[in-house]
């Protein structure tokens, strides 16, 4: 409980320092604050877009937080979500049911993630290095496919042909055109579902045991290699949902560079949540709000630009880390 309070305190200090930056560049912090908060909730469309920006961050935040429980640091969510998106864009040509397409896409991104776990477990490669490098491979493969084999001949950009209408997930009409639908609802519940799995299932127990003490877990007969592979598979599958959301719920095709580095923002989301599944949603919401809120900056102010979102995120991460570090020193 005290942890949560510290996090909140950190966020508020971060926001305060962020507003000082605003003063430093010569803008009125009240105008900026009003513009940013107004951009979040002033219309159903704005609410929808805020949730839209939050959803992928919940998925990628989890894709980092799950392996973190097993003691693995997954930098590969970006690659995993790209592989998932490409699979989602291509599978509708093969299968006929939307359910199978989603399942296939997360299976493929899960295998992509699992590969990182396998390389660590069976070949002794470090997961951080492997997952960073796998990102480059994923970008390479997906953009080659998007510009070659699966390219939409009618488009000037590297993107695949649109998927058939049966595969589209229809956004809620309440949001007046924002691409926010079932994936967002699913994302809001997923962390709590996984929290239950972690607490109640054998698999969750094994995963936590390996994360807490590898040697002890091995002595108890838990095969750590298998746990690592499964943890990375789960991470890849969860990241794959971002791809499904993009292809089925938003663009209806794979677009090169569709992700504004959601995979990497996921690391920040998981760290801000301190790896706790229950804190992933609020943490992702904060980052989603900053992403959406910063869109209003250039519209409403003279000097603030889109880069302010990055500045604010950085300051908040730093201040939250510092407030938690302060506790440890005080003891």
């Amino acid at each position: 409980m005290k942890d949560i309070l510290k996090s909140f305190l950190g966020v508020f200090i971060g926001l305060g320092v962020g507003l000082l930056v605003v003063v430093a560049v010569g803008e009125n912090p009240l105008v900026v604050l009003k513009a940013m908060t107004g951009a979040l909730v002033s219309s159903p469309y704005d609410i929808g877009m805020t949730l839209f920006y939050t959803t992928p961050l919940i998925f990628t935040g989890l894709a980092v937080a799950i392996p973190l429980r097993a003691g693995l640091f997954n930098i590969g969510a970006e690659g995993q979500l790209m592989v998932g998106a490409m699979a989602a864009a291509v599978l509708p040509q093969v299968v006929s049911s939307p359910f199978l397409a989603v399942f296939g896409a997360i299976l493929i991104s899960g295998i992509w993630g699992g590969l990182i776990g396998w390389l660590k477990a069976r070949r002794g490669a470090h997961e951080v290095i492997v997952s960073i490098l796998m990102n480059f491979i994923a970008v390479g493969i997906t953009s080659t496919l998007a510009n070659g084999m699966f390219k939409d001949p009618d488009s000037q950009l590297g993107e695949t042909a649109p998927v058939a209408e049966v595969f589209h997930s229809v956004p809620f009409s309440f949001f007046a055109g924002a691409p926010t639908g079932v994936y967002t609802v699913f994302a809001l519940f997923l962390p709590y579902l996984l929290y239950g799995v972690m607490k109640r299932s054998v698999w969750g127990y094994q995963l936590r045991a390996v994360g807490l003490n590898e040697t002890a877990a091995t002595l108890y007969g838990i095969e750590r290699g298998r746990v690592w592979i499964l943890a990375m598979m789960a991470a890849g599958a969860v990241a794959g949902f971002v791809g499904c959301m993009e292809v089925f719920g938003n663009a209806h095709k794979f677009r090169m560079g569709f992700s504004p580095e959601w995979g990497f923002s996921g690391i920040a989301v998981a760290l801000l949540a301190r790896g706790k599944f229950s804190a992933i949603v609020p943490s992702a919401l904060l980052f989603g709000m900053i992403s959406k809120g910063s869109l209003a900056l250039e519209l409403e102010t003279e000097k603030m630009t889109r880069e302010y979102a990055m500045v604010l995120q950085g300051i908040i991460i730093l201040s939250v880390t510092l407030t938690h570090a302060y506790k440890k020193r005080a003891k």
Partner: peptide, 11 residues
């Protein structure tokens, strides 16, 4: 305005 990502154009 400069769009920070491809999803923000419409907004």
């Amino acid at each position: 305005v400069e769009a920070p990502d491809d999803n923000s154009f419409e907004a």
